[in-house]
Simulated scan of single mutants.
Amino acid sequence: MSVQIIKKQDQAKGAFDFGRILENKPLGFPHEGGVTKPVSNLFYWAHAWSDTGGLIGEHPHQGFEIMSYVIDGTISHYDNKMAAWKNLSKGDAQLIKSGNGITHAEKLLPGAHIFQIWFDPNLSNSLKIPANYTDVPADSFPVVTENGLTKKVVVGENSPLNLDSEGVEIAEYRMGVGNFSIPTAKDSTYGLYVVSGELQVGGQPALSDDYLISKDADEISFEAQKDVVVFVVKINNEVSYRTYAQSQGIA
């Protein structure tokens, strides 16, 4: 098993609303200086938070599928399809299929933390389709517990959240102290964000906000040294279409 650990300090950073919203980006935009690049149809991944509350003003998106997941607290979302603000709370998720164009805005209430992750569903097709979005409450996602490892399926088997982007699976894992393994698939890459806690992976420490990358492995094994929450995104190494990142020479 080979796992690359991208420490928090080596990831891209961002800010909105005069620093009221801060971002840690395991996979930032190419100009932002992080060490990682888009992989297959996984294009962008940010962890955003606000201690005081802050606003990301209305802005446009096209083509990409944008999934937001509330790690903690509450956010409020506006888009020009609904033309109203709607709250999302801890454990809720939203999928925007931005299609041929949508504008939206987000407020992070004090103490809110979210992931926002972008996937490429084949822009040559998606740019021709009207935009839409789906909100899914936390209690709608399937949860499975086995051998002390609790898995919440955000995208995958029996989840109500469906992406057009090929091969994507997303899960949140929770575990106590002990040794654990997550089964993985060949011909796939896994990105793991340590939301909280402390791991040992291959003799290396992985702390909160560290990002782990595993490719073409049978499983990912680790030792949880504190109660741990890990958010995991699985993608296929190859998809059936030319991705935006490939077309721009940034994959």
Rank of each mutant, 00 (worst) to 15 (best):
I213R: 13
I170V: 14
W85S: 04
G63M: 03
N236A: 11
E23M: 12
L22H: 14
E198H: 14
G28P: 03
G249R: 09
V194R: 02
G249M: 09
A245G: 05
D92Q: 07
V239W: 03
G54M: 01
L149A: 05
R242P: 09
D51H: 13
G191W: 04
T184R: 05
F29G: 10
Y193I: 09
S159V: 06
V168R: 00
E23L: 07
A171K: 09
W45N: 02
N87F: 12
T74I: 10
L55Q: 06
N147H: 12
V155C: 04
A224I: 07
N80Y: 00
A12C: 05
S165K: 05
Y193N: 04
V201A: 04
F180R: 02
T74N: 10
I75D: 01
T145S: 11
Q11H: 06
F16Q: 02
V3W: 07
L42C: 06
L22A: 13
S124W: 14
D139R: 14
Y193G: 03
G101T: 00
K152G: 11
V136Q: 10
F180W: 07
T184A: 08
E32W: 05
D209R: 08
D17P: 01
L22M: 15
S40L: 05
W49V: 11
T103F: 03
Y244S: 13
S68V: 09
L192S: 07
Q11P: 02
L163E: 04
K86Q: 15
V136S: 07
K151I: 11
K215N: 12
